[in-house]
């Protein structure tokens, strides 16, 4: 006996299993980042100055520590990748597998570009002698963006699987494969939303 509703929606709820699953997972992710954000707020309202003393030097605004143009650039990359992944799903809905491949490939490239830019940012901090241990601003910055970066890595791995070996399913069970892409997309959009909140709260405020 097979497990029902993997490809089609259950009539009374109107959704297939994986969609309920991914939204539940995202709900828990909301609480995970919620916990981290509340830690950020808690520490910030208790701090006499923000960013304050970092590595023996006083910084008045986050602009003096972080590179806002680069952060903006990365925001754009992530937003673009959100569009490409939703386009890859739309291509499958229109039965255009070639287009799917192209858009999913672009999504993966965007993700990688985001990580490369992030790596340069981290490296710039390290070369100025700024490490997580040098003050709560940096601790928050590295922990939150680092955890977000891990989520990007996870997304890239999943997307690459669906771009490469996982895409064989299109031939055997196209409906279920389209669902999988939608679910992968939901996760990727969530990672984008987290960044949409991380960027202004850490870089701009």
């Amino acid at each position: 006996m097979d497990i029902p509703y993997t490809a089609t929606a259950r009539p009374d709820t109107g959704v297939y299993n994986a969609k309920v699953g991914i939204w539940l997972f995202l709900a828990s992710e909301v609480m995970l980042f919620g916990g981290l954000f509340s830690a950020y707020i808690f520490l910030r309202i208790g701090a006499p100055a923000w960013p304050g003393m970092l590595g023996g030097q006083l910084y008045k605004t986050s602009f003096d520590v972080l590179n806002v143009p680069i952060g903006t650039f990365n925001t754009m990359i992530l937003i673009a990748s959100s569009v490409t992944i939703v386009m890859s799903w739309a291509s499958l809905m229109m039965n255009d597998f070639k287009k799917y491949k192209r858009y999913m490939g672009l999504t993966i490239l965007c993700g990688l570009a985001f990580l490369v830019v992030k790596a340069f940012e981290y490296n710039a901090k390290f070369s100025h002698g700024l490490f997580p241990a040098d003050g709560n601003f940096l601790a928050i910055y590295f922990t939150l963006t680092g955890l977000h970066g891990l989520h990007v890595v996870g997304g890239i791995i999943v997307n690459s699987y669906f771009w490469g070996p996982g895409s064989k399913m299109w031939k055997t069970d196209p409906k279920r494969f389209t669902n999988r892409i939608e679910v992968a997309g939901l996760y990727w959009h969530f990672v984008d939303i987290v960044w949409i909140f991380l960027f202004p709260t850490i870089y701009l405020l």
Binding site: A27, G34, A133, T143
Partner: peptide, 23 residues
């Protein structure tokens, strides 16, 4: 589902405190 993630966040922060020297 909803109560465990904040503890996971706290565990990550405590790991940072212990391993990366944050406060």
């Amino acid at each position: 589902l909803l109560a465990f993630p904040p503890l996971e966040a706290a565990a990550i922060l405590q790991l940072m405190d212990r391993l990366a020297g944050t406060s």
